[in-house]
Write a protein that binds this DNA or RNA. Structure first.
Lengths: 336, 336
DNA sequence: TTAATTTACTAAAACGTTTTCGTCAATAGA
DNA sequence: TCTATTGACGAAAACGTTTTAGTAAATTAA
């Protein structure tokens, strides 16, 4: 391993000078800087992140806390997209990312402990149970934190405009003439509440009375659970003519149920999803859905986090807007 | 930050003793060990990974090198599954994972340099271009490496049984009476070659002559490209009665083409995928496919890597077997 | 000319561990 | 009883950086 000392010997200057030359201090003469940099690259020098961290207390590492137990974290396309975007933006800023978990080796440690252990400069939190005591401990600690789709006081957060999304989808269905619109929503998180609010607002604006049976809970990203919810809706005496699904992926569960009953989309029943992931575009029929800008969500959260780490950033709640994606899964409904 | 010194003061012993007590050296009396451990947890002590690394040269960090440019790395369900499994097995062994990239901050650095910078104890490589000079540099370096689905001499590798997979799928189609079987395969990587070999072997065993047009190249995980390949097959004078697709996800592209031509699966045409990801199970009709044990692939690669890091492991090529997943996408074909 | 400032550099401490080599007492062996 | 061994611990160096507080020479100011 080639160290600063090797360079200092090769150049005939002190290690301190090498360090300063490499880090752009202005008290080193241009010729020395030049010499040091050249020999550094000649020797293929790489600074040792650990040694640097030990002195500076900056690891250039940001922690990522995504889903704990539900397991669908890395395989959930929407979150994969966010993760990917977080990774890229972090790297662009000179940071690596570390997954924060709470069982490393045989030793149980809390999320916060894991962060301290790895000296994370900050953490991006998404898709976890925000009531979890360990998450709260982390949030309230001195580690800079940015949350996605959930907001704490005094902390920056990036939220997708969930209310707008479901509002627009529901409005669209109403505009197409549907009056019996059901909404299969996910578990009752904050995100879900926003979406329900958006749905309700649309219903109200179009003067549509929605029977309570039309609002049914299922599990995000879970085709089975959504299939059952769909079945329940289709079994109603007055089944809906349009269904809004919790997300694009789980919609496929509903689709299965619909097709197996000999119904067709969109002739017999109109549907829309949520997320606007790749999958939604290649399904047949192409799914009408709401695109969430995962890329922007990821980038913005890293941007805010780096601000929080490096400077004095003021806590801010950033709303990332989405986009209506029209497919072929909704048809005009003629009122009788 | 609470350090070993704090504990040593609290206990009235030297830092050396604390370190030894905490790390289970046998030269410390049981009472002292007990005392040290108790005060450590009382003070909520966490060792500083960087300081430890500096002395021991072990970061307890393993690098993960997945896809560079193609971008479909984290959003590719199959690789997500491997990544997830790698992460879990790593954590179970006391390691964190770090994504290896070659542009961190504004500074361009090679994969190897990134590994050195972060002091990765070892690296798992998958789904990259194994001819890439930077990848080769890493592979040939002194950093322990395990590769997935590609083998180098003197290095451990974990490979999925690709030949067997496509052999079994093709055989199944033949057994169902199909004689015009096409294979849309991915880019010509080693994996693809194995799959083609498996396919050919089955054709040979069943005495089926496959015209060259029946073997067509498309891009993995790319619905568009696969759709075009499908169109080409259906445009043939003698179109196939069964098509094997490169993977479950991209099959959807083919499905779109098939449905748009008014054909139905499996009545008019039989299909099968590859991977056996979640998606394949919820599609309608359920896809006949080959399940690759991503979980095992991930776990085994970490197991071998940890062996390579910690002890003297002998380089070994581990074959992970898959499983035939029968769906409803193939029908018996009556020969005329 | 002398004093003050600037320029370009260095010595050395520090970050939090681990580990080698002692040391000193207590115990065992002869 | 005297020596050899064992047990339990500590001092201090080391890992590779960064950074503070210098210092000596060169330059400028008075």
């Amino acid at each position: 391993m080639v160290t600063i000392k090797d360079i200092s010997k090769e150049c005939g200057v002190s290690p301190a000078t090498v360090s300063k030359a490499l880090n752009g201090y202005d008290e080193i003469s241009p010729e020395t800087v030049e010499l040091v940099k050249r020999t550094a690259s000649k020797l293929n020098y790489m600074p040792n992140a650990a040694a640097r961290l030990l002195k500076t207390n900056r690891s250039h590492n940001i922690g990522v806390l995504f889903v704990d137990d539900t397991m669908s974290g890395l395989t959930h396309e929407f979150f994969s997209l966010i993760l990917n975007s977080v990774k890229e933006e972090a790297e662009a800023n000179g940071y690596d990312i570390t997954f924060i978990s709470n069982n490393i080796g045989r030793q149980k440690m809390s999320f916060l402990q894991h962060c301290k252990y790895r000296n994370c400069d900050g953490v991006v939190i998404a898709s976890v149970d925000f009531q979890n005591p360990e998450v709260l401990e982390l949030v309230r600690s001195d580690v800079p934190v940015v949350t996605i789709d959930y907001s704490f006081d005094n902390l920056s957060s990036i939220v997708s405009d969930n209310q707008e999304g479901s509002y627009r989808l529901a409005s669209y269905l109403a505009e197409q003439g549907h009056r019996r619109i059901a909404f299969i929503h996910g578990e009752r998180t904050l995100v879900t509440q926003k979406r329900i609010r958006g749905f309700n607002r649309a219903m109200q604006e179009y003067g549509i009375k929605t029977p309570p049976e039309y609002l049914v809970e299922a599990r995000y990203h879970n085709a089975d659970s959504v299939r059952k919810a769909t079945a329940a809706l289709l079994d109603l005496e007055e089944p809906p003519t349009a269904i809004m699904f919790p997300d694009d992926f789980s919609f496929i569960g509903g689709q299965t149920e619909i097709l197996e009953r000999g119904l067709s989309i969109p002739d017999d029943i109109s549907v829309c999803g949520y997320d606007g992931i790749n999958l939604s575009k290649i399904l047949n029929p192409q799914l009408t859905t709401w695109y969430q800008n995962a890329d922007k969500i990821g980038k913005e959260s890293v941007r805010k986090l780096v601000e929080a780490i490096e400077g004095t950033s003021v806590a801010e709640q950033i709303m990332v807007s989405g986009e209506f994606l029209s497919g072929n899964s909704v048809r005009k409904w003629e009122s009788k």
